[in-house]
């Protein structure tokens, strides 16, 4: 279980993680928001479809790729949260089809 050692958080923002509203300290990383919310699966492996999560949290391993505000392939460990940010686990495998809605 991840937990924060911060004693006082002067400012928080609300983001959405897989549809759930989460209140997190301002300017922390997207990965930290995921870790504290307990929703630690970042992406599906493209071939096996297995769950993956952050591994190095320093931008090296690219395991923490998530979709942020509709943009896929974002490294959760390098991005900071912003008010109203919509974070979704990335689910692009070899078999994903593009969404034709809205065309």
């Amino acid at each position: 279980m991840f937990r924060s050692l911060r004693e006082n958080v002067p400012e928080t923002v609300q983001v959405s993680v897989n549809g759930h509203p989460v209140q997190v300290p301002a300017r922390q990383t997207v990965w930290s928001a995921l870790a504290l919310s307990g929703q630690t699966v970042t992406r599906k492996s493209a071939l096996s479809g297995e769950d993956r999560s952050a591994y190095c949290t320093m931008g090296v391993c690219f395991e923490c790729l998530v979709e942020i505000d509709g943009e896929p392939n974002q490294q959760a460990c390098l991005r900071e949260v912003a008010p109203g940010m919509v974070i979704v686990s990335q689910n692009i495998t070899e078999f994903t089809m593009a969404d034709r809605d809205g065309l």
Partner: peptide
């Protein structure tokens, strides 16, 4: 080593330094 929950010691440091986050137990 690809299972969620497996991380590096460097990751533990980064989480601690950046956002004061730790993994219990």
């Amino acid at each position: 080593w690809t299972l969620p929950g497996v991380m590096t010691a460097g990751a533990a440091q980064v989480m601690l330094k950046t956002d004061a986050i730790v993994a219990e137990n």
